[in-house]
Design a protein around this nucleic acid. Structure first.
Lengths: 241, 241
DNA sequence: TATAAGCATTGACTAAAATCAATGCTTTTT
DNA sequence: AAAAAGCATTGATTTTAGTCAATGCTTATA
């Protein structure tokens, strides 16, 4: 006899339903449920192995098996449900987070309560409040999950230890930060020198997945615009074609 | 008998007058000229020793005397007169430049010929088109001198050699880039989240020397504004007090 | 020393983006 | 299944920044 445990969550990650069905027949409804069960198991129970992180690392600096094993001892896996915080303003940022799966954003909140998105992070990106992480000062950014996400965390202690013990880690980090610097410089150049229409086109060309997966008002925030303005720019582009 | 050679340059660095005075008396006019002569000699002939660069390096990673000597063999001194280019768009950026003395700017030029300043570099700062420098692609920025300047150049070959031979160089570079990244992230945050008045106040608070030494229309360009707009913001701030 | 170039400021006007308000649609929640 | 929340779009209006043109001042050039 098979037992299927049916577990349903809403998108924010709250448990909605929990029930068990015994003696499953082969009608289609139950077949579907079996699929869902498998999915849930996969997302919640399967040991998750830092695959993408290690792949990313190796593509920049090739590691031996022993080095990989060493690094793994410094990593912490973490799952975040949609809307959960990884970091809140005024807390000290204790981690750098590499995204194995999902999507996060970093944003600041101004005096009148408006959110301003400074960074998105999808699979393969790293997100953190680097200033707070490195100095121990309170964070000025909030970081939260836009989708259910799987992260690899590197703590401050791990970071410092790895810098000392594994020269390849310093190389990896150097390349990583340099790339982030160059990308941000391009973004800044685009902001101060390109008309809005160009900026939006560049963004969709450079990061199509972000534009697809993230709500449009967040793209507007990332561009420093009101959602209405971005909507009008999109219409302008669409009608021109 | 003393001989004073009188050499006068205009601000762009062109030689205006060259003459010699023999048998100098002690009246005040000639005394003044003697001072100028000393100054000119100092700026043009004195061997220049990477003092600030090495000081900056040591403040991040302490070097032994031998290591200092090694690094020096990789450095090239260079003087730039005001308005001279260090780098022109479409050329490949061959150097990172550390500013010992003077002031430079990096800027892009848009389709309608407008200049957009992406970075200033005063004493102690490093300036380059990092993307072009690291990839060998044509530069997208121009870099030129705002004042007569003294630079320490690090070539691509020197950079790569030092990364391999001197781990402390990698550490220095990593810290340098990380700092630049954090500073730029703050600038970007300010752009997308603060009203103009705040942005200008922040800029003067953070980099008073830049605001003092650089013409106002260049500050406007750095902020992504028209010169008239910055002028009006300054008046607004001034009248509020 | 006279002339020209560069720069900051101001005013009048135009263009662009923000704000306010309303609608229809989809997704979530109960 | 109904109600609520989130989201994108559109229109009308206000606010803000850009553009064009002129002036006075300082610095550079011939």
């Amino acid at each position: 006899m098979k037992i299927a445990v049916i577990v349903l969550f809403n998108k924010a990650g709250f448990l909605l339903t929990l029930s068990a069905v015994r003696g499953i027949s082969n009608n289609s409804w139950v077949m579907e449920v079996e699929c869902v069960v498998a999915d849930v198991n996969c997302a919640n129970n399967k040991v998750f192995m830092y695959e993408l992180f290690l792949h990313n690392f190796n593509s920049k600096v090739k590691l031996t098996e022993e080095e990989e094993a060493l690094i793994k001892t410094y990593l912490t896996p973490k799952k975040l449900r949609k809307k959960q915080y990884l970091l809140q303003e005024t807390d000290v940022c204790k981690f750098m987070a590499f995204v194995e799966k999902g999507a996060l954003r970093a944003y600041s909140v101004d005096e009148i309560g408006k959110e301003h998105i400074i960074q998105f992070a999808l699979e393969g990106w790293t997100i953190s409040d680097l200033y707070s992480f490195l100095t121990g000062e309170p964070a000025t950014y909030n970081i939260d999950a836009l989708e259910d996400s799987e992260l690899v965390l590197i703590s401050k202690a791990a970071h410092e230890d790895l810098l000392l013990k594994l020269p390849k880690y310093e190389t990896y980090f150097r390349i990583q930060v340099t790339g982030a610097y160059i990308a941000m410089q391009k973004r800044l150049t685009s902001i101060i020198s390109s008309p809005l229409e160009e900026r939006y086109k560049n963004l969709t060309a450079l990061y199509p997945t972000i534009v697809e997966r993230v709500p449009q008002h967040m793209i507007a925030s990332y561009m420093g615009l009101q959602p209405e303005t971005l909507s009008r720019i999109r219409r302008k582009i669409a009608t021109k074609k």
